[in-house]
């Protein structure tokens, strides 16, 4: 473990908690893409299958359980409890356009052709693009509540911090995983225009307005 990965995990945890609290407190999931949340739940489910078979540390197990529980709780809030506030008309990204390439790529570019490894690879590639329906929805509605933009900033920062973690591990531990690195860079790059708007607007107290 290193400070970059720890900060990354904390940022990731923060994002998930911010989202849960926002929906629970405002009793509304307006502006939130249920599709992205479905993709995140799929990501954690296929990545943490080794939750019971491969014990890494208490921290690792704890965080996996929290991520799984929080992502399914968020889906429950969006599609069940506060379903009336789910903005279906703006959450229209065709996720099959994500699932197909991710599935093909995970079958072609992986470390080992075993079910567990393919599912892990699938989850890595899926996570890289899972935020697209949410970013698409924000661009479609033309704006995002500030709490939603804080959620996106924390979520985007987490994988950016993981990149620093991978640089650290390459030099200090001679460890690297090209699949995780490639997907992590893509994932972080997808947030770039949002990061620019967040830093130039939201941090100055303005609303996040995207050119529709």
């Amino acid at each position: 473990m290193n400070i970059f990965r720890l900060l990354g995990d904390v940022s990731h945890l923060l994002a998930i908690i911010i989202l849960l609290l926002k929906i629970w407190k405002t009793r509304s999931c307006a502006g939130i893409s249920g599709k992205s949340q479905l993709l995140f739940a799929l990501t954690y489910t296929t990545r943490y299958l080794d939750l019971v078979t491969n014990f890494v540390s208490v921290y690792n197990t704890f965080m996996k359980v929290v991520f799984l529980a929080a992502s399914y709780a968020t889906i429950w809030l969006i599609y069940m409890k506060f379903r009336a506030t789910y903005d279906q008309n703006h959450d229209t990204f065709r996720i099959e356009f994500l699932l197909l390439p991710v599935t093909i790529l995970s079958l072609v570019a992986n470390h080992e052709f075993t079910l567990i490894e393919i599912l892990w690879t699938w989850s890595i590639y899926l996570e890289a693009v899972a935020i697209l329906p949410q970013l698409f929805m924000v661009s479609k509605t033309g704006e995002a509540e500030s709490i939603t933009s804080h959620y996106l900033f924390a979520l985007g920062s987490y994988r950016g911090l993981y990149i620093l973690n991978w640089i650290y591990r390459y030099y200090m531990e001679s460890y690297y995983d090209l699949i995780a690195i490639f997907a992590g860079i893509l994932q972080t790059v997808l947030y770039c225009d949002f990061f620019y708007l967040y830093i130039t607007k939201v941090l100055r107290g303005q609303r996040l307005q995207l050119p529709a």
Binding site: D9, D50, S57, F67, H111, S174, Y175
Partner: peptide, 10 residues
């Protein structure tokens, strides 16, 4: 190829 370290990252 990647080092065969166990998958210790989240």
């Amino acid at each position: 190829e990647a080092a065969e370290a166990p998958k210790d990252e989240l």
